[in-house]
Design a protein around this nucleic acid. Structure first.
Length: 557
RNA sequence: GUCCCAGUAGCUCAGCUGGAUAGAGCAACGGACUUCUAAUCCGUAGGCCAGGGGUUCGAAUCCCUUCUGGGACACCA
C-alpha cells in the first residue's frame, strides 16, 4: 500500500510537470499536499487535495486544475483503474483490484515485520522517561510515563529509528540530602532512639521497611558513627535497594531500559563544571546575590535562572544541562524527554540552554503528560509521595494486570488529563477495551484450532483466490490492514502511540463485525481459503500492534 | 499578572500540520447464541465542536478575544 502511495505521488508530480511544460500552467513546484485513504469508500482507494493546494499559486479553480492533471495521467498499462475529480476538487484514485491479493500475501510473508518502516533512517534517538526520584515507589504519573515512553520507543524503533531507552537517576543533590535525614530518623526510631522525621522528609512506609532491612544487616553499628558517615552508608544502601525495586517493577510492567544513568556521575566526571565553563565562555553567566545565573533573558526568556546557589551547590537545572550536553556529544540527534506537566516551566529554559551552547534547541523534544487522576468506586484517590498515601505502580499491576494498565495509560493522548478508572480497568467484562482487541486475536486462534481439528490448515502462500473476498466487511478489513504501515509512519512522526491503540481497537471492531456476519470455515472451500488468509493477516497485524504497546496477544481467553 | 494544557454526544475521549456528510467506547433503548469463543454483533436515539469576531474556495482544526477547569511561574526537582 505504501508502494502505491509512492507511485501515485510520482504520477502526480509528472502530471504537474507535464502540464507546466506544455504551458497549460505556469511553472510551479509541487506543494506539500495530502494523499490519504478516504474515510468514505465512495471516494476511492486514495484521494488527494493537490488541486486545491495549487489553486492559489496557479490562480485557478481547484476543479479545473484537477481536470487538467487527470488528463495528463496515462491510465493504460497503469496500476490505476480509474481516476476522478470529486467534490470541491479532490482527485480520487481507484487501484486495480489485484492490489488486495498482493497486500494480504505481503502480510503473511512479512509476518512480524509487516508495518516496519525505514523512515527513521537509523537516526539515533534517546528516549528518556520515568526517571523518578529513587527515593520511593513509582506512582501513577510515573506509570503513565513508563507506558507512554516504552511504547513510543517501540514505535520509533519499528519505524526505523535507532532508539536508546534511558532512565536518569536523580541520585545527587538536595532531595538526596533530605532522603538521608529521613533514613537516619527511621534508623534511630527503629533502635528506640528519639528522632523526628524532617517536616519535608519522606514519610512513606517503604522507607521504614528499608531501614528495618538495614538494621537487620548492620544492627546498631552506625549508632555511634558520625552523622555524615552513617548517612552516606544508609543512602547507599537505600538507593541500591530502591533502584533494584524500581527496575523490577518496571520490568514487570514490560519496560526494560538500555541505560540507567546516574546523575552523580555528572558531578564526578566534571561534566557539570565543564558546562558552566562553556556557558561562561559564551557569555551566558552572571554573578549576582552570591549565586551564578544563566542569562536566559538574553535569549528572550522571562527571567534568568540560578545555576550555582549561594551555598556553592549546582542546581538541578545546571546538572540537567550537563546531562543533555552529554547526550548530544554521545551522538544523539534527537532527545525525547517525557515529563509531567508540572515540569513545563523547565522546557523553555532547557531549550534556551542548548541554544546558548550553540545547538539547535529542537534537538530536544519534550512530551508533557498531563497528570493522572485515579478513580476508585467513583472517588478520586489522592496521591502524595510525601505523606505515603498513594497507589504504586506495583500495586496497580497486581490489581488490574499489566495489559489493562498499559493500555489505559497509552490509549489517551498525553495532552489530556487521564482519569484512570480502577474499577473499569479491573473489570474483565466487555467494558474493557483492551480485552476487546485481545479477544479478536484469540478468536482467530480459535478458528485455526478448529481448522486443525478438521485436519486442514492455512493454504500455501499465493494459492488462495483473494478476489472471492467481496463482502463489505471483507473489503473494509483489507483496507484497514493495508493502512497499517502508514499508520505506523504517521504515529511515529507524531510521536503518538495512542494512535496505535485506537487503530487496534478499530481493526478489532472490523474483524468482530466480519466474524459475526460471515463464517470463515464454510461450505465453499475456495472461499474458506480466502477468508483464512484474511483472518491470518488480521491476526498478524493485531499481534504486531499489540506488541508495540507491550500487550499480550492471547491464543485463548 | 505571565505562560502551558484542556473545553467536541449524558459520561470518557479521538479527530486539531485546514478538506467531502464531525467519529468511537461506555451509558440508554430495541434486536441476534442448535452454527468457527455472545469478552461478540446488528439497529435506534443522542451535537450552536464553550461563546464571539476574523482569515478563505472551505474552519472542530489557523489568528484575535472572552469565559470555564487543571497545571507552572524557588538559590526544589
Amino acid at each position: 500500500m505504501e508502494k502505491n502511495r509512492e507511485k501515485i505521488r510520482t504520477v502526480l508530480a509528472s502530471a504537474l510537470e507535464s502540464a507546466c511544460s506544455k504551458g497549460i500552467f505556469p511553472k510551479t513546484d509541487v506543494p506539500d499536499y495530502a494523499l490519504e485513504i478516504p474515510r468514505e469508500k465512495g471516494h476511492g482507494d486514495f484521494a488527494t487535495n493537490l488541486a486545491m493546494m495549487l489553486a492559489k499559486p496557479l490562480r485557478s479553480a481547484p476543479s479545473k486544475i484537477a481536470k487538467v492533471l487527470i488528463q495528463e495521467i496515462e491510465l493504460a498499462e497503469s496500476f490505476l483503474e480509474r481516476i476522478e475529480v470529486a467534490g470541491p476538487g479532490f482527485i480520487n484514485f481507484y487501484l486495480q483490484r489485484d492490489w488486495v491479493h498482493s497486500e494480504l500475501d505481503l502480510i503473511l510473508e512479512m509476518k512480524d515485520s509487516y508495518g516496519r518502516s525505514e523512515i527513521g533512517e537509523g537516526e539515533k534517538i534517546q528516549v528518556e522517561f520515568v526517571s523518578a526520584n529513587p527515593t520511593g515507589l513509582l506512582h501513577m504519573g510515573n506509570a503513565r510515563g513508563a507506558a507512554l515512553g516504552d511504547s513510543l520507543a517501540d514505535l520509533l524503533a519499528f519505524a526505523g529509528y535507532d532508539i536508546s531507552r534511558e532512565y536518569y537517576i536523580n541520585d545527587a543533590g538536595n532531595q538526596i540530602e533530605n532522603f538521608a535525614l529521613s533514613l537516619e530518623a527511621r534508623y534511630l526510631q527503629i533502635l528506640g532512639q528519639p528522632a523526628q522525621l524532617p517536616e519535608e522528609g519522606y514519610h512513606g512506609e517503604d522507607i521504614l521497611e528499608t531501614m528495618k532491612g538495614f538494621v537487620s544487616s548492620y544492627g546498631d553499628r552506625y549508632l555511634q558513627s558520625p552523622g555524615i558517615d552513617r548517612r552516606k552508608a544508609m543512602v547507599e544502601y537505600a538507593l541500591s535497594e530502591k533502584i533494584t525495586e524500581i527496575k523490577k517493577t518496571l520490568e514487570d510492567f514490560g519496560v526494560v531500559y538500555d541505560l540507567w544513568f546516574s546523575e552523580q556521575t555528572l558531578h564526578d566526571s566534571g561534566s557539570v563544571q565543564k558546562v558552566l565553563d562553556l556557558l561562561g565562555q559564551k557569555g551566558f553567566l552572571v554573578e549576582q546575590d552570591g549565586a551564578v545565573w544563566f542569562k536566559a533573558t538574553r535569549l528572550g526568556l522571562e527571567k534568568d535562572e540560578v545555576l550555582i546557589r549561594g551555598n556553592g551547590m549546582p542546581t538541578y537545572f545546571a546538572v540537567d544541562i550537563a546531562y543533555h550536553l552529554d547526550k548530544i556529544q554521545e551522538g544523539f540527534t534527537k532527545i525525547i524527554n517525557i515529563w509531567g506537566a508540572d515540569h513545563h516551566g523547565h522546557v523553555a529554559r532547557m531549550k534556551a540552554a542548548l541554544q546558548a551552547l550553540g545547538y539547535d534547541p529542537e534537538i530536544l523534544q519534550v512530551i508533557l503528560m498531563q497528570l493522572v487522576r485515579l478513580y476508585s468506586g467513583g472517588e478520586i484517590v489522592r496521591m502524595s509521595k510525601r505523606t505515603g498515601n498513594f497507589v504504586s505502580l506495583e500495586e496497580l499491576v497486581e490489581e488490574v494486570g499489566r495489559d489493562a494498565a498499559r493500555y489505559f495509560f497509552v490509549m489517551r493522548s498525553p495532552d489530556s488529563h487521564l482519569d484512570f478508572d480502577l474499577d473499569l480497568a479491573k473489570s474483565t467484562s466487555n467494558d474493557n477495551p483492551v480485552y476487546y482487541i485481545q479477544y479478536a486475536h484469540a478468536r482467530i486462534s480459535s478458528v485455526f484450532r478448529q481448522l486443525e481439528e478438521l485436519g486442514s490448515s492455512l493454504p500455501a502462500p499465493g494459492t488462495a483466490d483473494i478476489s472471492l473476498l467481496v463482502e463489505e466487511q471483507e473489503i473494509l478489513l483489507i483496507h484497514k490492514l493495508a493502512d497499517f504501515p502508514n499508520e505506523i509512519i504517521d504515529s511515529a512522526k507524531d510521536m503518538a502511540p495512542h494512535r496505535i491503540a485506537r487503530y487496534l481497537h478499530e481493526l478489532a471492531g472490523l474483524f468482530h463485525s466480519f466474524y459475526n456476519a460471515h463464517r470463515i470455515i464454510c461450505d465453499d472451500s475456495r472461499l474458506t481459503e480466502a477468508r483464512l488468509v484474511l483472518a491470518a493477516a488480521v491476526q498478524i497485524v493485531l499481534a504486531n500492534g499489540l506488541g508495540l504497546l507491550s500487550l499480550s496477544a492471547p491464543e485463548k481467553m
